[in-house]
Amino acid sequence: MIQPEAAISTDPEAVPHTLEIVGLRKVFGARGNAGGVVAVNDVSFSIARGEVLGLVGESGSGKSTIARLIAHLHTPTAGEIRVNGQPVPARLRGAALRHFRRQVQMIFQDPYASLNPLHPVRYTLSRPLKIHRLSRGTMDAQIGALLERVGLAPASTYASKRSFELSGGQRQRVGIARALAASPDLILADEPTSALDVSIRLDVMNLMLDLKDQEGLSMLFITHDLAGARYMSDRVAVLYAGTLVEIGPATEVIDRPQHPYTQLLKSAAPKPDAGLVPEEIAARGEVPDLKALPPGCPFEPRCPHAMPECRSGLPQMYDVGHGHTARCLLHDPAIRLNRGGAVGAG
């Protein structure tokens, strides 16, 4: 019933969350008040110190846009972003911008596109150190230490390489090292393993987990892979058509999904450990047009449990216990009563 996200950090004693976003919204290509792609629609969540939040959704659901909004690569249409308890103004420049960049770093999806093909690894890693004037010993020593931290040893052989001389996994490690160089508090990892081969994905994920544990980093881990999110995250948030539909502890959300969309995602995912029985799924249609979202629940047109009430407005987030909330009317006590307590969810 309550919106737990809004209630965050009211306790003045608490350590501020590394990241809080409240009512974040982004509309692309709107002319005046009309039209435009609603890529992110009133999204709120927070990430505590040392926590990994997994952000799951299909392509086009707005995951990258959220990361880019937080990273100050896009300007939000509405909503607030707070880093370490401090609101981030819409326009940042000069020292304030540099200070912000030190706190928030990003890892990109495609390691083939996120490294400039002309620059050697040494250059790529030296820039954040120079920009943020971080000197802890000589430049070469610092770069060497960074490379070794991400498992690229011996550092001297990797420092002089350019990206096309590295494999996908090695490139992604360089990308991670670049993000670490500024010693950030928060890392936004936008599908860091999607472009990698299965055989090396786990090692990159393990590296990120290790770094998180060693440095107490907070992390937004974006993925379209439920199993990966489960492996990496402490909590998981599920995004559908720009709207946050479910959030809670990773094992809760993925093992006992409460929103019909999360249930659909789970049943559709390949399950290596489920054996040889392919699961039949019953989903109609496709993701709605972000230019003309339905007025109510965005998933209503495809939902097997759709009710007339679903069309009357965006449902709120309902608490389903264990710090787990879902944006679905099936969890509305009034509707539960009407339907004879038989919650379709599950």
Partner: peptide, 23 residues
Amino acid sequence: QQLMNSFPPMTGPRTRRSGIPGR
């Protein structure tokens, strides 16, 4: 064998697994 073990599981306890090193 190693490839089959490279997929994070969707159920059961969350254990560390490792991928296949090298290329």
